[in-house]
Design a protein around this nucleic acid. Structure first.
Length: 495
RNA sequence: GGCUCGUUGGUCAAGGGGUCAAGACGCCGCCCUCUCACGGCGGAAUCAGGGGUUCGAGUCCCCUACGAGCUGCCA
């Protein structure tokens, strides 16, 4: 059996959206599961849509996600070039197209845009929303019947031309997909698609077939949206007399409205997600589970585990909704599993964004590790360290803690001199001080701790409790905040 | 409009004719607890509809409905 070779063939048109990322991932996994090669090929045959810097985004994304390619523009494996515009320079696409012309499987077409437009037929109600109003065009093979002389003549006159596939009008074409099974389409439905554009570039569809064959790609993995055009690919393979690869068409990924993900939905691309505070491993893991599930029913899986367990035959047929809520959960799982040092390094920039004081960032980092879903949650969780927020005295009243303004005032008044006298502001020291006060007064932990935590944070909820926060804030700031609380409570009670 | 594909809880999903249809996210409740999280325990919630085939159907066939994709000198 020949070595498995898959390819990721993006067109450099912008950021890599999660659908493309999943395609790349599955291609990588299929290859690596069989110890095969994963190839990167840039499909830049559309100069109109080419975006500067997009190739760098592709490199960055593959590197960031760990989908390391074995061959590509930057890694020659003997099947180059790996950029279609460079391949075109050698004239291979035109040569192959001409071979098809010689066989009668393709033909020159000189039709003008105007003539093509006249073939279009409107249907649907034009009063309806634009989406219902479509045009249908199937080329009428007008130029198929040009004589050899006529063609030579037009070519000599430099009349612009394209080369079209010559599909039969009768019979049917069948291909097999690893996920969707056998699909048969009447040849009558097959349009004579363009192989070579008038600018000399091949269309994606044609370049794909030629390149996949020349690069010995064994498994063609791509989005479901290509299912409809695959019969035309099959005809091309047959006309060339080439062996077809294994087709693996992937179900669509949709947004919550069950529509194709769009750039506007915000969470569409890998880089968007990174900016939203998601971590790479979680994104990869989550995306892997959109359309596939592990046979041993595990969900949190490293790339290595995915390689080991992935089997493309288990891929789902139905479209999957991209559920960012579940991604958030998975992201939080990855953060919790992460080594403390590693998390600290990732969290530090987010911490420094809201805290400029000289505090123990590492301890803050440890406090938030189990409490955040994305790195972007950090800011609002810890901003009170930097500055005490304005808060209402009513916050001291808590039913479950059995506290109110009076009881809180008493606790804080009792504790203030002890805190003032305390030298060691370590967590343990503060803890034993408060604990002994609580047992001395025979009150509940909550009755003693709620007022303190409220006073030093000004928040209903905080990462960590009173001991942790006080020890991080330090003596001076803690005392200052407690005195402020006492003032507020006194004022409120006297009114 | 035509062609193609799809349809198991709100979401991801297991399930290839025969236990009360797994599991996860989310949601709700309880426990733990100085708050919020973490963790633990429990709960509600699903086979789109209709016909067949069969002793028996989420699983096979047909129809309907709904959804999606394609219908570009885009990929």
């Amino acid at each position: 059996m020949s070595k498995v070779r898959t390819r990721y063939a993006p067109s450099p048109t912008g950021r890599m959206h999660v659908g493309n990322l999943r395609t790349a991932l599955y291609e990588y996994l299929i290859a690596k599961h069989e110890d095969g090669d994963f190839i990167l090929r840039i499909e830049d045959t559309d100069q109109e849509r080419y975006v500067d810097g997009a190739i760098d985004i592709i490199y960055r994304t593959l590197e960031g996600t760990g989908l390391i390619h074995d061959e590509g523009p930057d890694k020659d494996g003997g099947y180059g070039p790996y950029v279609q515009s460079e391949r075109m320079a050698s004239g291979i696409y035109l040569d192959y197209a001409k071979k098809l012309v010689d066989k009668g499987a393709a033909y020159y077409c000189f039709c003008t845009k105007e003539r093509l437009d006249s073939l279009k037929k409107a249907f649907g109600d034009s009063d309806d929303s634009k989406e219902d109003y479509k045009e249908i065009i199937k080329y009428d093979k007008h130029c198929l019947h040009l004589s050899k002389e006529e063609i030579e003549d037009k070519l000599a006159q430099n009349i612009p031309y394209v080369i079209r596939q010559n599909n039969p009008l009768e019979g049917s074409t069948t291909f097999h997909d690893a996920i969707f099974g056998s699909i048969t389409v009447d040849n009558e439905e097959l349009d004579d698609m363009i192989l070579i554009k008038s600018d000399g570039y091949p269309t994606y569809n044609f370049a794909n077939v030629v390149d996949d064959h020349m690069m010995k790609i064994t498994h063609v993995v791509r989005g479901n949206e290509y299912l409809s055009s695959t019969p035309k690919y099959t005809r091309l393979y047959q006309d060339f007399g080439w062996e077809e690869p294994v087709y693996v068409h992937l179900p669509l990924i949709t947004n919550e409205e069950h529509k194709k993900l769009s750039k506007r939905s915000g969470h569409a691309s890998y880089e968007d997600l990174i900016e939203q505070g998601f971590i790479s491993e979680a994104i990869v893991n989550f995306v892997a589970l959109l359309g596939w599930s592990s046979p041993n029913n595990t969900e949190i899986m490293s790339l290595e585990e995915l390689i080991r367990d992935f089997d493309y035959r288990n891929i789902n047929k139905s479209p999957a909704v991209f559920d960012i809520v579940k991604l958030r959960w998975m992201n939080s799982e990855y953060i919790k599993m992460m080594d403390g040092d590693k998390f600290f390094n990732m969290a530090l920039p987010y911490i420094k964004e809201v805290i400029s004081k000289d505090l123990d960032y590492r301890r803050i980092s440890d406090l938030i590790k189990t409490r955040i879903e994305t790195l972007c949650d950090i800011g609002e969780m810890i901003d009170f360290f930097e500055e005490l927020p304005e808060y209402n005295v009513e916050m001291f009243t808590h039913k479950k803690m059995k506290t109110n303004t009076e009881s809180s005032l008493k606790v804080l008044r009792d504790l203030l001199p002890r805190f003032e006298a305390l030298e060691d502001y370590s967590e343990a020291s503060i803890e034993s001080l408060i604990k002994s006060y609580v047992s001395e007064k025979e009150i509940k932990n909550g009755q003693g701790l709620w007022p303190v935590r409220t006073a030093i944070s000004g928040k209903q909820s905080t990462p960590g409790g009173a001991y942790e926060i006080m020890s991080i804030l330090g003596k001076e700031e803690s005392l200052c905040r407690i005195r402020l609380a006492i003032d507020m409570l006194e004022k409120a009670i006297n009114e």
